[in-house]
Amino acid sequence: MIPGSFSYHAPTTVEDAVGLLAELGDEARPLAGGHSLLPMMKLRLAPLEHLVDLRKIADLKGIREEGGTLVIGAMTTQAEILASDVIAGHCPVIQETAALIADPQVRYVGTLGGNVANGDPANDMPALMQCLDASYVLTGKGGSREVKARDFYEGAFFTALQEGEILTAVKLPIPPAGHGYAYEKLKRKIGDYATAAAAVVITMAGGSCKTAAIALTNVGETPLYAEAASAALVGTSVDKAAIDQAVSLAEGITAPASDGRGPADYRTKMAGVMLRRALQRALERAAG
């Protein structure tokens, strides 16, 4: 399988990249790690005339802390996330999630920006970014804007990203020290997308839940931020009754497809099971 013909561009600055995209219009696509787009091109499902490879743009790389905010360049690979001391120290749930994406070879090449910008509801990082209340920096010819991950996803492969824009960075508020976290993913094998997965971040004080955020992967047209389920935990001791309530509310917002990963009812139940496990593990990890 070989992609159809296209012209290849490898700009070295964001300015040049968005300039090219504006000039070439809807026949051009940006390329991040390429492990979603290239397979689609090989299947001739993503016809394009121009490929704008972002790999040479140094400004899109890197992980840094800026006054309580974690800023991750869009072209940072999953392997770089796994090796980052900054992420290990401030927000280890990102590493826990990255380790469950695809396989080692894919993680060397696949990027955070590609994972969140593609709009594939099966990708793992979008739900995690909703859970962490991250924002995406979207840059076009006219400048940059920020959109919250919780507002970014409109449908399967439909996002707030406008034509000519690229996602340049992910920004997220660093969760407080002592937060509890977990990402639980059910998959049939290494390299598979989730049958269902759940991301959880909670903070506890004096045995009581102060904040909670829950999001679900691959059980709907978009990643799902489970607002009511999250709110149901706040003020509780995250005991069985509270977890039952949160699981029930989270299951209620799912609308999975019936496919090779199982019938819809099963996948909804598995989302509940993943959430239950994630909550239990987050609670064990939380201080206070």
Partner: peptide, 13 residues
Amino acid sequence: GKSVKSCTVLAVQ
């Protein structure tokens, strides 16, 4: 210095 699946990398890359 990275293991890659060369069916999903372009030669120009």
